Amino acid sequence: MDTIEHSLLAFINTQPDQLYHKGRWIYGVDKPFSGLFMVMSGATRLYRLTEEGDELVTGFCLPGEWCGLPDLSSGCYTGYAQALDTCAVRCLSPALLEKALAGQGSRRDMYSLMSNVIRQNKKRYFQISKARADVRFAMFIQDLSRRFSLRGYSPREFRLPMTRGDIANYLGLTPETISREITKLEQLNILHFRRHFITIQHPRVLDALILNK
């Protein structure tokens, strides 16, 4: 973790939690930038609208992850962040950002840090979308496992706050395909699902399934 991220975390940790209930928007497209957000608990889905008005899920923000980087030219948000369940979020306002960046080389360093988040999301999506349909869901679960692990949570047992429809939208599949893949992985005894909770029973087998795609 670099100095700038340490500085941002030091300031975000002084802020109170703001609760957003399921379905509530944390920020929306074309709204003026009001700050960066870190999810403390729960999760959000990130999406934008197509020209036809359809929702296109672009990612999910888990505990300990940032969202809310604006478009640099307009100073407005470019998409939507919506709570998937009761979600605790902390906001780093523009004024706090100024303080957090005091003494740093340039404000562009902060945008560089946040741009890394965007690049990681795009890289993650590109890798998943290039896989065969029957492997995409396995890669999605593997990615969630890694991200939960990085934040100190169990990599083998965690909750899926998003719906199968949201997962299907993100992966470019149908909800029916997601349901079939869940059934298949359960029959292979790789995963166990109970409502929204998932247990990766054989992580190495899951990894091998992806590597042999």
Rank of each mutant, 00 (worst) to 15 (best):
V89K: 03
G75L: 15
R24Q: 15
P161F: 01
S41C: 05
S145N: 00
L150H: 06
F158Y: 13
S93A: 13
R194Y: 12
A81P: 02
F33R: 07
E55V: 14
E5K: 05
I198K: 07
E65L: 06
E157A: 02
R204G: 14
L8Y: 01
Q104M: 06
R90P: 02
G53W: 07
M40W: 05
V29D: 13
F193P: 08
T163D: 00
I4T: 08
A100L: 07
K130R: 09
L69G: 13
F126E: 08
T50E: 11
R195H: 04
S154R: 06
T3R: 02
F60I: 13
V89N: 03
F148Q: 10
G75S: 13
Y170W: 10
E98F: 06
V89I: 12
R146Q: 15
L188D: 15
Q15C: 09
S115C: 01
C76G: 06
N189I: 10
L84C: 07
C87N: 07
S154N: 12
M139Q: 07
F158N: 01
W66I: 08
T199P: 04
V39P: 02
R146E: 14
Y80M: 09
H196W: 12
L92W: 00
G165N: 14
T163A: 01
R132F: 04
L150M: 11
L36G: 04
G152L: 15
K31Y: 13
F126Y: 07
N13F: 03
M1Q: 01
R124D: 03
Y153R: 09
G105E: 03
Q187L: 10
F126T: 09
N116S: 05
I190K: 03
M110T: 05
E98P: 14
I200L: 05
S112V: 00
I167F: 05
R156N: 10
Q142F: 02
L144A: 09
N13M: 06
V57Q: 10
P32M: 15
M38D: 00
A10F: 01
R146P: 01
H196I: 10
L173Y: 09
Y27I: 08
D134V: 10
S112P: 03
R132D: 04
L97E: 11
G105V: 11
R107Y: 04
L72K: 09
V39M: 11
R24L: 14
V135K: 15
F126L: 11
T14D: 15
V39R: 10
R136A: 04
F137W: 08
V205T: 13
P32C: 13
G75T: 15
L92H: 00
E51K: 10
D85W: 01
W25D: 14
K123T: 04
T3E: 00
T14E: 12
T86E: 01
S112R: 01
Y153H: 10
R107T: 13
Y125H: 13
Q127E: 14
